[in-house]
């Protein structure tokens, strides 16, 4: 499986470490009133989608960047790869 790294081009998936659903970027507020429930949800529960999902891959044997990869979990087809940093910054921009 090749992951189209936005800076380095196509790289073998073996260079990456897999973390899981890209929703893990949305870390809940640890001081919020519902923090225990929110962190149970964040740490343990997953949508576990059969189909297209966005997920976090770490280029551990490469440039050590985190990517958000859009992938079909039924066919392993990779549709898109972005730097996780760009995804988070874009979300912050939109939130402003």
């Amino acid at each position: 499986m090749l992951i189209p790294h936005p800076l380095l081009g196509p790289r073998d998936a073996g260079e990456f470490t897999y973390l899981g659903d890209a929703r893990l970027l949305e870390r809940p507020d640890g001081l919020g009133p519902d923090a225990p429930a929110a962190f149970h949800d964040y740490v343990y529960l997953r949508d576990n989608i059969a189909g297209v999902q966005r997920e976090l891959w770490f280029h551990e044997q490469g440039d050590r960047s985190w990517l958000v990869v859009t992938r079909d979990t039924l066919t392993h087809e990779i549709l898109k790869a972005e730097l996780a940093r760009d995804v988070v910054l874009a979300r912050k921009e939109a939130g402003k």
Partner: peptide, 18 residues
């Protein structure tokens, strides 16, 4: 193997990844 898919029909998210 399909737990999340079936239980999502009952509105549940599970501590499971396939």
């Amino acid at each position: 193997g399909s737990s999340s898919r079936v239980m999502s029909k009952a509105g549940m998210r599970l501590p499971i990844e396939s």
